[in-house]
């Protein structure tokens, strides 16, 4: 599982970086979305992979942290997902406004080479 997880993050971040370096605004926003997945999974991976051990306790349970998946990266990623939605929305509006103002969807606001 670990190797698949690692490869998945590799593919996501590679695709994300490739799109990030493209000239069109839409490509960049897609690239950022993919990078966001990759980074969220990356942070999540810092707590290692655990199956059927959701960090949800019942009052009678022994609160032994080794029995549960690490809740800290999960809490970090949860807010990161929401924030990345907010930044995507902001970026989208900025590129739409830039397209309206400059007449192009090039990231520099004017047509460069390709």
């Amino acid at each position: 599982m670990e190797i698949i997880f690692a490869l998945a993050i590799g593919v996501l971040s590679g695709s994300g970086v490739w799109l990030l370096l493209r000239p069109r605004t839409f490509q960049v926003i897609m690239g950022l979305s993919l990078l966001a997945y990759a980074i969220n999974l990356f942070i999540f991976a810092m707590g290692r992979l655990a199956i059927d051990r959701a960090p949800i306790l019942d009052p009678g349970d022994v609160p032994d942290p080794t029995l549960y998946a690490d809740p800290v990266p999960q809490a970090l990623v949860l807010t990161a997902i929401v924030i990345s939605f907010a930044t995507t929305a902001l970026l989208l509006v900025v590129i739409l406004a830039s397209r309206g103002l400059t007449g192009t969807d090039h990231v520099d606001g004017r047509e460069g080479e390709a």
Binding site: E2, A6, G10, V11, G14, S15, V17, A38, F42, R48
Partner: peptide
């Protein structure tokens, strides 16, 4: 490809 490979290596090293 380099970045993706690097990330995959890093994640696997951690995992």
């Amino acid at each position: 490809v380099a970045v993706g490979g690097g990330m995959a290596t890093l994640v696997f090293a951690v995992l």
